[in-house]
Design a protein around this nucleic acid. Sequence first.
DNA 1: GTCTATATGCAGATAGAC
DNA 2: GTCTATCTGCATATAGAC
Lengths: 197, 197
Amino acid sequence: MPPLNEQQLDQNREERREQIKRAALKVFAKRGIIGTKISMIAREAGISQGLTYRYYHSKDELFIDLVKDAMEETAEAFASLENMSGSPVEKIKDLTKKMLDTSNKHSFMLIQQVQTSDEVPNKAKEIVRQYPIPSFIEQLIPVFKKGQAMGEFCTGDPAKLLMLYFSVLSGLMLLPNKDEEGHQVLDVDILMKLIRE
Amino acid sequence: MPPLNEQQLDQNREERREQIKRAALKVFAKRGIIGTKISMIAREAGISQGLTYRYYHSKDELFIDLVKDAMEETAEAFASLENMSGSPVEKIKDLTKKMLDTSNKHSFMLIQQVQTSDEVPNKAKEIVRQYPIPSFIEQLIPVFKKGQAMGEFCTGDPAKLLMLYFSVLSGLMLLPNKDEEGHQVLDVDILMKLIRE
DNA sequence: GTCTATATGCAGATAGAC
DNA sequence: GTCTATCTGCATATAGAC
């Protein structure tokens, strides 16, 4: 009897892991690493509590894995602005919308959590430090300066203004916006008044 | 031998409670109710872990007591705007500054926590619900409308704009502003661009 | 009144059955 | 591979000593 296709088995395993990760991201983002019990993740994923440990050795390991993914996605999102078309204002607006999109939002919330809480594993903190946040914002500075030259953005130190803008954005993500039916509560245009004109 | 002054004893007890409350507010605000261990509060207050229970029967009870205080202070802060002098812009600016002041900040963070987390005791949620947040904001609507008439504030639905403004403020309080030397990181004037002109 | 020592309960992690 | 049952450790809360 020939052995079963090992690739197939590996892929099944990978899919399981993804299933757990999706469930975990959702719960971690909402309740924090301490507030999240493994049983909650298991329930969200529709598996038993014990099975989680066949895929991740510990809650921390799972959390760290998610943080790694989140940072990579964030780095991509910021980098993608380079080769985007549109005016500076439109670029920032698009990035804002992308960040607030529910699929990405949880990742940003996770990163936010790593930065603000000291209950997260040290390794998670290290990963986030590897990509210093200011470096993300630095990528936007040329775009912002161009916008200032065009009269789209207000005058002032670009780094400072961008930092404030993204702080506000981060802060708002932590709050529950009661969009029970998927309609965006937050008006991006109003938000952009912080840096406009 | 005459009995010791009972009032004196009561006052000592009250002072101890205040000492515990001060310590607890600081830790709860930063780490949340779950992330806060009784031992942390005790250490912050400079007393033993067990002694805390002579003054509060449980962690929840202590938390609830703090929420009660916080709501009362907040109600006062919003109500005080009525009989304040100054233009509408100045009133809102003052309120903002008051909220960001470290002594009040922790109270607002606590309330924020009650609203956003579902790990807090139900009784805390009830207390916060007793003073519906929209009612705080409603008190500001006349002020805001006056500001609009004077051309200080932008046009648009006052309730919505104020809600956004205070959401931003709340969100920012949750973030760690690295003001290690007491100098205000946050520029209130920039923040007010959200509702100005 | 305050501290140290102990009991209880819950959640992370493991072991063993199927 | 997955589930249920169990071990272990930590934090809340209590009891007892000073």
